[in-house]
Computed example of a mutant assay.
Amino acid sequence: MSVFVDIAADPDLGARHHARGADARPGRSRWRGRVTRAALPLLSLLVFGVVWQFAAASGVWNQTFVPYPATVWGAFVDVSTTHDGVRGYAGYLLWEHLYMTLRRVLAGVAIGVVLGVLLGLVMGSVSWVRSVLEPWLTFLRALPPLAYFFLLVIWLGIDEAPKITLLALAALPPAAVATTAAVVAAPVGLQEAARALGASRRQVIRDVVVPSALPETFTGIRLAVGMAYSSVVAAELFNGIPGVGGLVKDASNYNNTPVVLVGIFAIGFSGLVIDGLLRAAERRAVPWRGKV
């Protein structure tokens, strides 16, 4: 009752109460949105675990094909520790396998992305270069990694060179294609305005084309990382231990499904972390994306 009396005595008081309520509602809404975004992935993970447990317990599939989650967890612990005098898997702990795989992926992606972005800038800026190289990029993008990995082994041996080369070749086409498309789609009006103000070709590319192409270029980089990750098992077919791909390949030779699943989950979760880091870098480098 006193609130209504105060509002009657001071007409502006109602407006101030309304403003405070309006300010509080967006805050609560943002908080609920964050909780929802955090809860949904956890809920999906829980549902996946329950379905997996029921599938393993149903007896429809042999334990070799669908082991229990607890069995996979035990394999994860074994691969990550020293037990009964055995150190991890094939003498390496899981983090050592993952470190070698990530080192190869990082080297291959760095080479493929740098070459792909530079190639995309040239192809997007010079039409005749695009006409010459675009079919070759399409040809390379259509090839599965195993189609040319054995050729790389013949040429480069079985050490690190063919693995990194394969990952670089897998990462190059997505980065090049995305950058080319972004450069071609750069606003012509802004480029002409920059030239009218006396900007050179290099300045137009640096100050107009590159900033406008950055959002799609980041998309291409994320696709390039995904392609490299999808090729990592093929890259580690030969002499891939230590390495998660080599671990998966070796465990599959002995039908060791729990260890295979441990390797798959290690690749998948590390890929999620790297993609999250790329998203964060994209938000910092291209803060205007989705706002203009």
Rank of each mutant, 00 (worst) to 15 (best):
1 M>R: 07
3 V>R: 13
6 D>T: 15
10 D>F: 12
17 H>D: 11
20 R>C: 03
25 R>F: 14
33 G>P: 02
33 G>R: 06
34 R>N: 09
43 L>F: 11
49 G>M: 15
50 V>M: 13
59 G>C: 10
59 G>W: 05
60 V>P: 02
60 V>M: 12
61 W>V: 15
69 P>W: 05
78 D>Q: 08
81 T>L: 07
82 T>R: 10
83 H>V: 12
86 V>R: 08
92 Y>R: 06
92 Y>K: 10
92 Y>M: 11
103 R>C: 09
108 G>Y: 00
108 G>F: 00
109 V>G: 00
111 I>R: 00
114 V>G: 11
118 L>Q: 05
119 L>T: 00
120 G>S: 09
122 V>I: 15
146 L>W: 02
148 Y>C: 10
153 V>N: 04
154 I>E: 04
154 I>C: 03
159 D>C: 01
159 D>W: 01
161 A>L: 12
163 K>Q: 11
165 T>A: 14
175 A>G: 02
180 T>E: 05
181 A>N: 06
187 P>L: 11
188 V>F: 01
197 L>K: 04
199 A>E: 13
202 R>Q: 13
208 V>Y: 03
209 V>H: 01
210 V>F: 11
217 T>M: 15
218 F>G: 01
219 T>F: 01
239 N>P: 04
241 I>H: 04
245 G>E: 13
248 V>G: 02
250 D>V: 08
251 A>W: 08
253 N>W: 08
260 V>D: 03
262 V>M: 09
262 V>A: 13
263 G>E: 06
268 G>L: 03
273 V>Y: 05
276 G>F: 05
280 A>E: 07
283 R>F: 07
285 A>Y: 06
286 V>T: 12
288 W>N: 05
